[in-house]
Design a protein around this nucleic acid. Structure first.
Lengths: 125, 125
DNA sequence: CATCTATGTTGACATACGTCGAACCAGGGT
DNA sequence: ACCCTGGTTCGACGTATGTCAACATAGATG
């Protein structure tokens, strides 16, 4: 599974830049398809353990952390791995093995896109 | 159930102003308690139907909508009601009965707070 | 009061989800 | 080669979740 995977919330472009899937929630009613896409991201963050893991990675120095640095969240190590996988599948994290350790890092554009979703529609453009 | 209910993400104040529960996800690792609180919100938006309903209300004129205006999301009416209740319990929506119809409206501060959660930690303040 | 329309509630069901222990894979020493 | 440590995958289990049909409730209106 090392080939490029489709990110749910963002459409990757050739340059590596990404374009958000959906307008702000407040702009117009989401279509079924938009909702399906965006909900996948929210769902991924909708578990306390996953949210802690994500926050731990996101706030870690350099925007990345190895599993050993963040796996102290009160669940077994397989469960940590399971949740990290979920976050990866949701397009929120990427992982890379370097020697003994596996490093996870956040996809910054995804954070920005999710933030945009929750933006109040600007009164005037 | 008409008495004031505790909002999960925000602590209501006397004035009606609210104060966010958590710092940006990228600022520092979330505590278990913070994660529990914030995850409840993300979870509420983690279902496509709920996300559509929420978006429909949020984007509706005046920031509010009656159920009849937004219940065309492809599921039965009881299911719509169920999801609206979930959104209410998560502190994302409030409801008010006016005559025959029940109107739902978004809690604007909650949107702002969630947006802040997804903010990149500003390099300099 | 009878009844109609708009919502909410209940009970039941299938599926999804979070969790764990055990087994398994990958690298790095020794 | 061997084993040790870090991490993932597998299989199983209990619980939560989304969904619907049926019933219940709240106002409006005749």
């Amino acid at each position: 599974m090392s080939h490029t995977k489709v990110l749910p919330l963002l459409e990757p472009e050739a340059s590596g830049a990404v374009v958000p899937c959906c307008p702000p929630l407040t702009e117009r009613p989401f279509t079924a398809e938009e909702a399906e896409t965006a909900a996948r991201m929210f769902k991924a963050l909708g578990d306390p353990v996953r949210l802690r893991l994500f926050s731990a990675v996101a706030s870690h120095e350099g925007g990345e952390a190895c599993v050993c640095d963040i796996s102290d969240v009160g669940v077994s190590q397989p469960t940590v791995s399971h949740h990290l996988k979920k976050l990866k599948e949701a397009g929120l994290l990427t992982s890379e093995r370097r020697g003994t350790w596996v490093y996870y890092r956040v996809e910054p554009s995804v954070l920005a896109a999710m933030g945009r979703l929750l933006t109040m529609a600007p009164a005037a453009v």
